[in-house]
Write a protein that binds this DNA or RNA. Structure first.
Lengths: 127, 127
DNA sequence: GCTATCTGTGCATTTGTGTGCACATAAGCA
DNA sequence: TGCTTATGTGCACACAAATGCACAGATAGC
């Protein structure tokens, strides 16, 4: 055993639960594929756009791009609208920023409370 | 074509490049596995700890936990020290928070500039 | 020296993910 | 009614990732 249970407090338990709760696997996984990141970049530059246009210049097949856009949509990163026979995709910037903001807020206490290999010198004691 | 190239400005290009540059695949991938997330939670609650103790209660083999800890370390999320025959792992909270902060700062402009399916009503024009 | 403990790695297996092709569906157009 | 275009899906395949077992290297203690 390396620890002295000094971290067995409501403060750390709350931080742990918050971290677990905010680490949305579906959202994070959507951002781990290089092709999907390229799609995010393209949507920033192009704005709302149909699948064929988004696929332009990319090496992957159009069906592959369609699947990636679906994954991004299920993660909340993109939204889609039907326009005739086309389907227009667009970034949901506010949602993305909100999501990352929530992650940061949940993890922020770690900056002070989870310094690596640092003895706990609080609780009114002076090292 | 759905767009009118109104977004072909240095502002959007900079945001696109910033988004691509900050989306560290190795860092994000490390946080997409349920087992690794559990390890983060355990390290929050236990503090600096050796591999065997961290593996306690988890269904996976010790060797699997060892590999996951290595992945977390390569992503900068954990750090390790050798203590005799044990290897102590601990969270690098400041690095994690800094990383997420950089991501948020890079993506924050999207909240205003990438609202889904919203016509651009800036540039001094009034809708 | 020997033995026990801790850790990481090689190997094989299983599962998950990305990809491309062919095809079905839907919508516009002549 | 055909014909074309746009999109998504079923299927098979390739590759990466997670897992467990067995074992080797390192270290502590006898």
């Amino acid at each position: 055993m390396q620890n002295d249970n000094t971290k067995d407090t409501p403060e750390y338990k709350a931080m742990a639960d918050a971290a677990i709760g905010v680490l949305d696997t579906r959202f994070l996984k959507a951002l781990t594929d290089p092709t999907r990141i390229q799609l995010v970049k393209k949507l920033i530059l192009l704005g709302a756009c149909d699948v064929t246009t988004i696929s332009g210049g990319l090496s992957q097949d159009r069906s592959v791009i369609s699947r990636h856009l679906n994954i991004l949509e299920q993660a909340g990163i993109t939204a889609s609208r039907k326009d005739g026979r086309r389907v227009i995709y667009d970034l949901d910037g506010p949602y993305v920023v909100q999501k990352v903001t929530l992650i940061l807020e949940a993890l922020r206490p770690m900056a002070d409370l989870c310094k690596p290999f640092q003895a706990i010198v609080n609780k009114g004691e002076v090292a």
